[in-house]
Design a protein around this nucleic acid. Structure first.
Lengths: 183, 183
DNA sequence: TCCTAAGTTGAGGGGTGCCTCAGGTTGGCC
DNA sequence: GGCCAACCTGAGGCACCCCTCAACTTAGGA
């Protein structure tokens, strides 16, 4: 599989990945490919040599970003207090959304995802389910909050973050207050 | 100002408005103008005759839709219970979002708005401020919920509605629970 | 050093949507 | 019925982004 690339080709590939990461983070996953190539100092043809489709580029970048979320979830599961762990996870998750539009686009389903990427999402989502279950068992999260409701929360927050990057914590706080058991 | 249109011109104008209302509601305010013209049974040139810009079309349609929101707010202010009135308003507001993508786009600020339209929004927003103030005075809405937070809620709900048209009431319910005073 | 396969280039063709304008049509007053 | 201003038409130019491919360049082994 991994035939070694020629030195110049490897260098160009790295530059393309770097430029794509930058531009995707700034402008989202639908950033023009021409501009990625230009920023990488490479022709559009070379971009297509290395990444025949937009998906190929995304697949080379997004799993790394999603992995950060897994770390976040694991840390949250380790937290002594289930509720505090959940809240810390939500804060970290949306902080990442706020600084990387590509993550925002990906998790809000604003782009078509490749099977590979979908699988990574499912893995992350599994961790979230565990976090939610733990917080319910501890009696701190209201019992009627379903995993699907978490999906809606991600959608909602992705939009709030995009339009008011400075105010999303406030919005999240109101919502989280609604999630706590009344008692 | 209002020079009478020739009969055929008036008919075409009406058809254009009808087609635009349909398409905007279905697909949002960025629906292709060519398709509006086609649906109206008229050439693209005629569309531009009557509405030189996309804004002109929006301005001819959206104020009517926003007026419905005003009625809704007035009814909510008339409600005996301030909290129940507020909740009814929110439900009505987002129900309209759900069935008309153009309203969704407009209130979520997804398109550039004309001054005229902006003014209509401000009027509606004034009503909302009154609703919020009333619910706070009655001690049912938490005091730290600011009008700007309402803006974020609109953003959030607009996205939830777009991606899961059947589940937005659930999401709203969680949020509203967070808004009620703890007591 | 020379040769070749690997890699690069960028003009160009395709698609979509916006907007214009020269030329053709027609409503409605006389 | 005749006329003309009002109105309509739609091909075509522009801008953006997509993707391809024949011609060129070059890394690196022999």
């Amino acid at each position: 599989m991994g035939k070694p690339l020629r030195a110049d080709a490897a260098r160009n590939r790295d530059r393309l990945l770097g430029a794509a990461a930058e531009l995707f983070a700034e402008r989202g996953l639908d950033a023009p490919l021409d501009e990625i190539a230009r920023r990488a100092g490479v022709s559009i043809g070379t971009l297509y040599n290395h990444f025949p489709t937009r998906d190929a580029l995304q697949d080379a970048l997004l799993p790394m970003r999603l992995a950060v979320l897994d770390d976040l979830a694991v840390a949250a599961l380790d937290h002594a207090d289930a509720w505090a762990g959940l809240v810390a996870f939500l804060d970290g998750l949306f902080a990442l959304h706020a600084e990387d539009r590509s993550l925002n686009d990906a998790l809000a389903g604003r782009v078509a995802v490749s099977p590979q990427l979908l699988e990574a999402c499912h893995r992350t989502f599994g961790n979230v389910e565990r976090l939610l279950a733990r917080a319910k068992e501890s009696g701190q999260l209201r019992a009627d909050f379903a995993p699907d409701d978490f999906g809606a929360l991600v959608q909602a927050m992705s939009q709030v973050i995009r339009t008011s990057p400075g105010a999303w914590r406030r919005h999240l706080a109101f919502f989280v207050d609604g999630l706590r058991t009344a008692g």
